[in-house]
Design a protein around this nucleic acid. Structure first.
Length: 305
DNA sequence: TCGCAGGTAGAAC
DNA sequence: GTTCTACCTGCG
């Protein structure tokens, strides 16, 4: 089956969006297991011309399968219209050429997105994606060779580190402890992950975020341990499809300051305000394109100096 | 070997 | 309200 809406799958899946780590790659095919209406479904997707082609294995209808992929790869977003918008602005007009077909890679599991995003803070893409893979493999349900992300009530029970595991289990030698969060390379974020799991198990229902206004959703998600403004905006954009979010970190700050303020140093909170005010409903996509444009055009190396 | 990079929490101003 | 520092790990 094919969805006739242009996309660059490689770029989209590997662009480091904190919704989830890249899907499993076998040759030209990307695969993953996704819960659709409570039913585990294995999707295979691949690039076919400029479109996404797919098949799936699971007890759902063709329409459900198609709708699920349209959501995850944001295939209903009008990219052509967005490119028109970019081209109307001098500062942005180079970007579409460098990132053609890049779309949001939205999280099918908002809890996975929250934990991924917490792991991504003060971290490299390589390290946080490995951490999320490890968490899935250790504590997630397995379907064929693919792993779901664990539910919050299950992640809640996981040991924080070697010491806690050693003291609470029958393992004789602390060297043999591997069944804990720090073993996934999450570092000091381990307690945040546990506290967040507690929060979503006991008092906060993540699915309510979908129906909130952006401002209210931002305030709510800021209360999660390990979540500050940058991570909150990543969660809202990549996990809940709030396209008015403008996640601002040091890189976006450098790029915005270069493009709009003649290189003058602007604080990250000001960059966030600037981006949201200036780009409105396009803020999220502009942020996504800015980052990859800077990466691919060599601008990033230039700005680092 | 060690310095550096990267957001958040919590404390200090 | 804004600014400072510690936090963990992989990389160069």
């Amino acid at each position: 089956m094919i969805i006739k809406s242009p996309i660059n799958l490689d770029l989209t899946i590997n662009s480091g969006q904190t919704s989830q780590p890249p899907w499993y790659k076998n040759g030209d095919v990307y695969s993953n297991v996704v819960l659709v209406g409570g039913e585990p479904v294995i999707f295979n997707v691949w690039q076919s011309g400029e479109y996404l082609e797919y098949d799936y294995l699971g007890d759902i209808s063709d329409k459900q399968a198609g709708d699920c992929l349209r959501y995850i790869f944001d295939l209903d977003f009008d990219l052509t219209g967005f490119y028109k918008y970019l081209n109307q602005h001098d500062e942005l007009k180079d970007m579409s050429g460098f990132c053609n077909g890049l779309r949001l890679f939205l999280a099918p599991d908002p809890f996975e997105c929250v934990i991924s995003s917490i792991c991504s803070a003060n971290n490299s893409i390589k390290r946080w994606t490995k951490s999320v893979f490890d968490i899935k493999q250790k504590w997630g349900d397995r379907h064929q060779n693919y792993y779901m992300f664990p539910k919050s009530k299950d992640l809640l029970k996981v040991y924080l580190d070697d010491e806690e595991e050693f003291n609470s289990s029958h393992i004789q030698n602390i060297e043999e402890c591997t069944d804990n969060l720090k073993n996934c390379g999450v570092g000091y974020r381990a307690p945040y992950i546990r506290k967040a799991s507690e929060l979503f198990t006991i008092e906060m229902n993540l699915s309510e975020i979908y129906s909130m206004e952006y401002g209210g959703a931002f305030e709510n998600i800021l209360n999660v341990p390990g979540v500050g403004p940058k991570v909150a905006d990543c969660i809202l954009l990549y996990g809940f499809n709030f396209k008015e979010a403008f996640p601002s970190d040091v890189w976006i700050k450098r790029i915005v300051s270069h493009l709009y303020f003649d290189g003058k140093d602007i604080s990250v909170p000001k960059v966030r305000e600037f981006g949201m005010e200036k780009f409105k409903k396009n803020a999220g996509y502009v942020q996504l394109y800015m980052f990859h444009y800077a990466r691919m055009s060599g601008l990033m190396k230039k700005l680092k100096k």
